[in-house]
Design a protein around this nucleic acid. Structure first.
Lengths: 161, 161
DNA sequence: TATTGTTATACTCTATAACTATA
DNA sequence: TATAGTTATAGAGTATAACAATA
């Protein structure tokens, strides 16, 4: 049982924040299971998603985007490279930088991750009408835009495209 | 950065599942911070919440409700007992059982946790109208009732009162 | 000297398995 | 023999700090 989920506990939450914690944790575990079926760990999937839209970043930039230590990125990229999903290449202009890019296999895996996310959404939507579903999506986007929770330190880095 | 949140990454999610993962993780971290300000860890807060509505359970039952190993409950209750928030008492009918109950301080802390959750909801709601907010809550409840994500193994144990 | 990446090390959270006491 | 709780140990995931290479 993950750390945060233990906090929410088995009691049906009476507030939006607790309910969001509860449902978000369930959704995360569900998506993590689908991710592992594709042969990578959830954090590795995060790296693949970022490189899908931000090709060519170096490891320090990736660490900042993910909000993790640069040493963490080393081991994540190590395994992705060993699996043939990510390419590491020393920059010719500054040989300190490792330029990261998805390989062809990496892009194929990213496509499978997207399909898995779509499948999860179909599962989630089972109890909801189409109208409910799109309304929920809009409300969640509004929540994401809200200033209520202290924003990510790395907010400025978030990809919006 | 927690394990599951690394999966969601810094990219604004285009699907409900990923968005829920992202927002749920943010809400969890926000609530965890408020929890720590009250002097306990997030998992300990989970125990306090359960004991608030299920007073008198033993440690095995608590472990099942939380979905953790019984050895985990030992250390959680150890610290809560040391902090004077939970009372451990051998059952007179079966001396193998430790009967768990909140102390007066424990109940006071539970009240503070509720207030913190209310404060978080107020923060969250900042960007939403009252109508949006209640609609969102209803949609999230529907999602929680949906059969889409595989249900908790411990579903039957969830408190609904 | 400052920065990128790497390695070495340690810490937190949790589970598994062995053990004790009670039934 | 079976069950509740405890203790001992191990593993996963992550961060911090020291180091190497490049600028």
């Amino acid at each position: 049982m993950p750390y945060h989920r233990l906090m929410a506990g088995p009691i049906r939450p009476a507030r939006i924040g607790l309910l969001l914690t509860h449902l978000g944790s369930r959704a995360a575990e569900n998506l993590a299971a689908k991710t592992r079926e594709l042969g990578i760990t959830p954090p590795e999937a995060g790296v693949v998603r970022v490189l899908g839209s931000r090709s060519g970043v170096n490891q320090r930039e990736l660490a900042e985007m993910l909000g993790v230590a640069k040493s963490r990125v080393v081991s994540l990229v190590d395994s992705l490279e060993a699996a043939g999903l990510v390419n590491r290449e020393r920059s010719t202009s500054d040989r300190r930088n490792q330029v990261l890019m998805l390989t062809e296999d990496g892009r194929a895996l990213l496509a499978k991750l997207s399909i898995a996310a779509e499948a999860q959404d179909a599962d989630l939507a089972q109890g909801l009408s189409a109208a409910d579903r799109s309304h929920l999506y809009e409300l969640l986007l509004k929540l994401d835009d809200g200033v209520g929770l202290e924003r990510d330190v790395r907010r400025g880095v978030r990809a919006r495209e």
